[in-house]
């Protein structure tokens, strides 16, 4: 395949990944690395580098839309970013130590888990829980606009959330994904932050987390301009288009199909990783 054809095909694939990722809220990075490694036979290290770059682009590009909604809590985000960036450094460090087959297996397991998580109902119950002393001292409690006016919330279990965030950062640094699913899990399930605040704050954090490992990947030569160019431009355009029609689209079936695809890719990554194909 010539560079011209390769660039065009990767661009189209990335456009589709970014579009579906943003439309379903599952992120484009999770399908990008399997797409590049399984279909285009790209070395997984180059794939991870290119994916990481596209994750920063979508996170920064979407920030403006989230700010308008007024849901994200920058204090929670900034505090937890200490954990995610440290985790990202650990993950990027680990990526150089373990075999590419092992990375593929971890990636596959993460994909299967993301597919499983996306099928679970979102927690939308009312939370009237008393303030937690640590969260209060860290000034994390906040409020957000809801159907019946402003709704305030109290953040819980800060240490548990902080540890989970370290794990999310490590996965992001190891696999080159945003690991938004784990971040939302940490905030929504562990810290009892309302779902909408969790997802928007997670998006806010993804770019900073990815930047922490991107520096290391760049200096290690994992970020190839020829590959990253179509990936970054495709994912960015795709995710912006996805965000634009998000409000109108019926995403229930799309989410189901997309999570099935993610699950299948996960199985394939585990198989290839174990069989030595990656």
């Amino acid at each position: 395949m010539s560079v011209f054809e390769f660039t065009g095909l990767v661009w189209i694939g990335s456009l589709a990944a970014g579009f579906l990722g943003s439309l379903t809220g599952l992120g484009g990075g999770v399908v990008l690395v399997p797409l590049l490694t399984l279909l285009f036979k790209v070395d997984i290290r180059y794939a991870i580098g290119a994916s990481l770059v596209s994750v920063i682009a979508t996170s920064s590009g979407a920030a403006a839309a989230y700010v308008k909604e007024g849901f994200s809590n920058i204090r929670i985000g900034m505090f937890l970013e200490i954990a995610t960036t440290l985790g990202a450094l650990a993950g990027a460090f680990l990526a150089a130590k373990v075999s590419t087959g092992a990375i593929a297996v971890v990636f596959g397991v993460t994909l299967l888990y993301s597919a499983f998580l996306s099928r679970r109902p979102r927690s939308q119950r009312e939370r009237d829980i008393p303030p937690d002393p640590l969260a209060t001292r860290l000034r994390m409690n906040g409020s957000f606009p809801d159907a019946g006016g402003m709704r305030s919330y109290n953040v819980q279990h800060v240490p548990a959330g902080f540890s989970l965030m370290f794990g999310a950062g490590a996965l992001s640094g190891l696999l080159g994904i945003g690991s938004g699913a784990v971040k939302v899990l940490a905030m929504d399930q562990a810290m009892k932050i309302p779902f909408k605040v969790s997802t928007t704050t997670s998006n806010f954090m993804i770019g900073v987390t990815a930047a922490a490992s991107a520096g290391i990947y760049l200096s290690r030569g994992y970020i190839d301009p020829g590959l990253s160019m179509p990936v970054m431009l495709g994912v960015l355009l795709g995710s912006l288009l996805g965000a634009r029609i998000l409000a109108k689209a019926e995403t229930k079936w799309l989410r189901l199909i997309f999570s099935l695809v993610i699950g299948l890719l996960g199985g394939e990554m585990i198989y290839k990783g174990l069989a030595g194909g990656i």
């Binding site: 020829g226 160019m229 431009l233």
Partner: peptide, 27 residues
């Protein structure tokens, strides 16, 4: 910038063979 660089890259190297199978690291 990525787009402009991409145009230069494709004009100069578009017809050579794409190969990302082997990891060599960047110079």
């Amino acid at each position: 910038m990525v787009f402009c660089g991409g145009v230069i890259y494709l004009v100069r190297h578009g017809r050579s063979l794409a190969d990302f199978r082997m990891f060599r690291g960047e110079p």
